[in-house]
């Protein structure tokens, strides 16, 4: 037990070592006056900004708003990505019909959609949710289709030989068979959605982390920009870890 705890402490130190060294070098450079504080503020002033932003509630309020937008767009992407993915994965015909259009729309970055989205949805919430949806949808869809195509045909045959009813076949054979790929899609999809949040909040927003960053930029508050960026990074990491955990729990059989 002792040695195990010792070892995991060791891992923890390694885990943080690089971040720690970067911050140290950064602090030393700032203290010696090598860095222009407008271009790159010192770590301690960033820390002060964090305390300030937390104290007046701006950081968490904006964070929660962004997270809730991302979750809305993401759940929509996951739901449609998985259900359409299953349909396309099961039907050779549908696969052929949709392949070209999917491959053409997929490479268009969400930012390029902004003008259209404003025209279609106006500047309200739904447009932002739609942009986030676009960010994750295709990744999830394609992974689900791949997962179904890669399922062992011998196992599909077993289910077929038992005349399994449709919904049972979908829930006990098709989805678990494709589950590893579905999770890959869900994880990359979530990080794409999260990355889209700044783009989505560029659409005349007055809230959210994207707004926080863009607003601070206009006033030259580099420290706030950096705090916003760090928050996006940390929240993204936490969301990915949660999904990884869910994946590990779900794919117990592997």
């Amino acid at each position: 037990m002792v040695s195990k705890a010792f070892r995991s402490t060791g891992y923890f130190i390694e885990y943080l070592a690089l971040i720690f060294s970067i911050i140290s070098v950064w602090t030393i450079m700032s203290n010696q006056g090598h860095l222009n504080t407008i271009i790159l503020p010192a770590p301690n002033s960033i820390l002060e900004t964090i305390v300030e932003l937390v104290a007046d509630g701006a950081l968490f309020t904006n964070m929660f708003i962004s997270v809730s937008r991302v979750l809305q767009g993401y759940f929509l992407a996951a739901f449609l990505g998985i259900s359409l993915g299953i349909l396309i994965g099961l039907s050779k015909h549908l696969d052929r019909v949709t392949e070209l259009i999917i491959q053409m729309i997929k490479p268009i970055p969400p930012i390029a959609w902004i003008p259209l989205v404003i025209l279609w949805f106006g500047i309200g919430e739904s447009g932002k949710v739609f942009l986030i949806f676009l960010g994750g949808f295709f990744t999830i869809l394609i992974n689900v289709v791949d997962g179904i195509h890669q399922t062992d045909p011998k196992l599909v045959e077993v289910s077929r030989s038992m005349e399994t009813p449709f919904w049972k076949h979908i829930s006990l054979m098709v989805i678990p068979g494709a589950a590893p790929n579905i999770f890959t899609g869900l994880r990359t999809g979530l990080s794409s959605c999260w990355m889209c949040v700044v783009a989505a909040e560029l659409v005349s927003s007055t809230t959210g982390l994207g707004y926080l960053i863009m607003d601070a930029r206009q006033f030259g508050q580099t420290d706030v920009v950096i705090v916003g960026m760090l928050t996006i990074g940390i929240v993204g990491k936490i969301m990915d870890s949660l999904l990884r955990f869910a994946e590990k729990k779900t794919l117990r059989w592997i």
């Binding site: 077993v158 030989s161 054979m173 068979g177 059989w253 592997i254």
Partner: peptide
């Protein structure tokens, strides 16, 4: 195929999940 015909496959073909 029909479920009135049971099959034991050469490879066990259990669903791993």
């Amino acid at each position: 195929p029909s479920k009135s015909r049971g099959i034991v496959f050469q490879e066990h073909r259990l669903f791993p999940w």
